[in-house]
Write a protein that binds this DNA or RNA. Structure first.
Lengths: 334, 334
DNA sequence: GTGAAAGCGCTAACAA
DNA sequence: TTGTTAGCGCTTTCAC
């Protein structure tokens, strides 16, 4: 690999001149400029970003700390980040964490050593140890598909509570009254709790229901867990007409159980999901769901990081992107 | 951010001593070693990987050049790479390319500037310009889910032609005789052509069929394209009993069309997919398919890179990981 | 307009 | 065992 010295030698100029044609070409007389350009071409020279980074204190690289990249939701967000990053000249170091605290810590440490310009922290609540690391690193952090109400950290996500409220309201508008929910774990303060809360509030407002306890199953955000939860729900609430699932994957699990029981969706029971993953368009029936603009969340996250790097002001610390209901074939009017 | 000088000053030793306690602690007397460790702790010091990289000529970072990370297949492979990378102390810079040549080139250029230790090149054929860049970068390149028969580049993938052959043979063993295929584009030499060829060979061997022209639709690897292709196939071949789809997404498209036509899978028509994406377990009916060990492909790719970096010999340049048929509910015996 | 020299943070001889 | 010094490849004063 050739260095700036090789170029300088070949063009018969000093290394500072080479540096100048790369960074401020006008400050070099055309004749030399051409000679240097020629030499750069001949050698296939490319500047070493490590050396540059050492000086500029900037690497044009950000870290993305993610529980599970093989999750469709995360992958879509990452794509948005990457695409916007590409436009802004930023790269992404991907860190899969499995949600393990020790692995998150190790990843944050490495990212810091690699002098990333910023960190995207995804889908997990920000606990004390993470926040402390953010502090000592003193580089921009943006929370993606998560937020912190206790720390002053910028975030991008949808308004989960409201989205959930809207989902239930939609079901009610379609004439449903006996509605159940397959919720995520209540201990999950990012996606579990708020979606449950939205459901509860909508039950009160739309259905005049004070207590919803027996209409809800709290299970992990997984297909199989939802499959089993659906089974319990159908036993418990015989005249059920609709189910709100806290994720699309869960909705598929619920539909699958219904199918196994010989019940038709949406003829016998309506199902609405949450996320709007691509698979919702490929399922039978096609899934009615609450869209989260995942790709856009990723793009905006990268833009926020950019603003932070430029010390541009943020319009709002916590950014909520709009959600909306995508009507497909899994919900019918009753 | 504190530097090695700050630590040295605080511990009242020279910077080389600090460097030593980080890289060869035994070479420092315990007393000083402790003092240095204390100082490191107090300051929260972490070495600057850029400075290190400049010296070691190694960044412990690899680049992953991928057409579309939001693709379930790619995401699973990347997860395998990341997990193995984490075990080996390597990080991954993710480069989404949309398959655009100019974007691939730009990404390769940046990766080179950032001095990555290796490159994973995924799912696309290696054309002349890419190969030339690989040459001039002179860093290890591993082809993932693609291979080159013309260049001497290490690769990891399944044996697509054989996997496809096995899929058809499986259908034949289940008693099917009137079988069609929804193939990828024939111009796609990575996944399109070989899977078609395997189908053709198996038709000859298992069905005594010399020509398969009218039994095959060549369309993009997409849900919608497969949906439409299935429609054409069903019109053209009325007594069809089974369809082999070159990807799981395609299989879902085909099943969807069949469903819209009021045909039952597998009762009326059997469908077999290819990939074994997670969604195959969530569809109705659950998809019978040819498994590609995507996660393992990712892991192995990272291991191959590791060997290359250590100049360890590779057992074989082109590594084919085993595929197998996953029997679920979309194929029946006739 | 250009080159020499200092320095980004670190490691690795080389002396002491 | 330790400190001093010379770089790694680059940018940026500062003279000329």
């Amino acid at each position: 690999m050739s260095t700036i010295r090789d170029v300088a030698r070949l063009a018969d100029v000093s290394i500072s001149t080479v540096s100048r044609v790369m960074n401020a070409p006008e400050s070099v007389v055309p004749e030399k400029r051409e000679r240097v350009r020629q030499a750069i071409d001949d050698l296939g020279y490319r500047p070493n970003a490590l050396a540059r980074g050492l000086i500029y204190k900037e690497t044009r690289t950000a870290g993305a700390v993610i529980p599970d990249i093989s999750n469709l939701y995360a992958a879509e967000v990452v794509k948005g980040m990457e695409d916007m990053g590409h436009a802004l000249g930023m790269n992404l170091i991907l860190c899969n964490t499995d949600g393990s605290e020790s692995r998150i810590i190790r990843n944050l440490t490495v990212l810091r050593e690699k002098q990333v310009d910023g960190i995207f922290f995804m889908s997990k609540p920000v606990t004390e140890p993470y926040y402390e690391m953010f502090q000592t690193m003193k580089i921009p952090v943006v929370l993606v598909a998560t937020e912190s109400l206790v720390y002053e950290l910028p975030s991008v996500k949808v308004h989960d509570e409201q989205a959930s409220y809207d989902a239930l309201t939609y079901l009610v508008a379609k004439g449903h009254r006996r509605i159940a929910m397959i919720s995520g774990p209540i201990g999950d303060t990012v996606a579990g709790l708020p979606r449950y809360k939205g459901f509860k509030r909508a039950c009160r407002d739309g259905l005049g229901l004070a207590k919803v306890g027996d209409r809800v199953e709290f299970v992990p955000f997984k297909y199989q867990a939802a499959y089993e939860a659906m089974s319990r729900l159908i036993d418990r609430i015989p005249d059920l007409t609709a189910v709100f699932c806290a994720s699309d994957e869960m909705a598929l699990g619920a539909i699958s159980l219904l199918y196994d029981l010989g019940l038709r969706v949406p003829d016998d029971i309506s199902v609405i999901g949450f996320d709007n993953l691509k698979i919702g368009r490929m399922s039978i029936p096609k899934l009615t769901t609450v869209e989260q603009p995942m790709y856009e969340i990723g793009r905006q996250a990268m833009q926020i990081l950019q603003k932070l790097r430029n010390s541009d002001p943020l319009e709002q610390l916590r950014l909520y992107l709009p959600h909306r209901i995508i009507e497909r074939d899994s919900v019918r009017a009753v």
